[in-house]
């Protein structure tokens, strides 16, 4: 099988890579492009570990092939960092409120929460629960994940209010 060249736009940067059609987006990101924050968890699309944002929406990168996503915008957790690797306020909230223990589910969880927060101004805790239903965590029991997301939303609402005044 002759590999083909594809250009992927990952975290705002164009990356050229030679892939076979059967190379999943997960494997290309993790093994070929050095994006270690996109990891294998189950290969079934069930656990949420491999979540990336595709044009802003969370998808399972283990269920997509790299050849499918040329010209699409892919964002991984590392893509949320600001200049000089400054933490995104959502990441800060996770740190402050204990939303991450072993950390393996964290990229998928934060990206999914980020996507929800971008689409919905003030999701309720129940809406957050529902949206995160496909992001499995075995360490935290989820409560501090919700706490962190709500804290981020609260802070953001405050900042927006201040900006309006």
């Amino acid at each position: 099988m002759t590999p083909q060249q594809v250009t992927l736009r990952v975290n705002g940067v164009l990356r050229d890579v030679l892939v076979a059609p059967s190379d999943t987006l997960l494997d290309v990101l993790h093994d070929r492009l050095g994006l270690k924050d996109v990891r294998y968890g189950c290969g079934e699309g069930v656990c949420g570990t491999c979540t990336v944002l595709l044009d802003g929406d969370p998808v399972s990168s283990c269920l997509m092939y790299a050849v499918q996503v040329e010209e699409r915008e892919i964002v991984t957790l590392l893509g949320l960092l600001g200049e000089d690797e400054a933490l995104h306020p959502l990441q800060e909230a996770f740190l402050r409120l204990g939303g991450s223990q072993c950390g393996f589910c964290t990229p998928g969880v934060i990206l999914t929460a980020y996507s929800l927060a971008e689409r919905t101004p003030r999701p309720s805790r129940d809406q957050i629960r529902y949206e995160l239903g496909g992001s499995l965590c075995r360490c935290t029991g989820y409560t501090k994940i919700f706490d962190a997301i709500e804290s981020y939303l609260e802070d953001r609402a405050c900042i927006e209010e201040q900006a309006l005044n």
């Binding site: 270690k36 991984t76 957790l77 590392l78 933490l87 950390g103 964290t106």
Partner: peptide
């Protein structure tokens, strides 16, 4: 380690 975990760099 929690810093690297929320960053994704661990």
């Amino acid at each position: 380690d929690f810093i690297d975990k929320v960053k994704g760099s661990i």
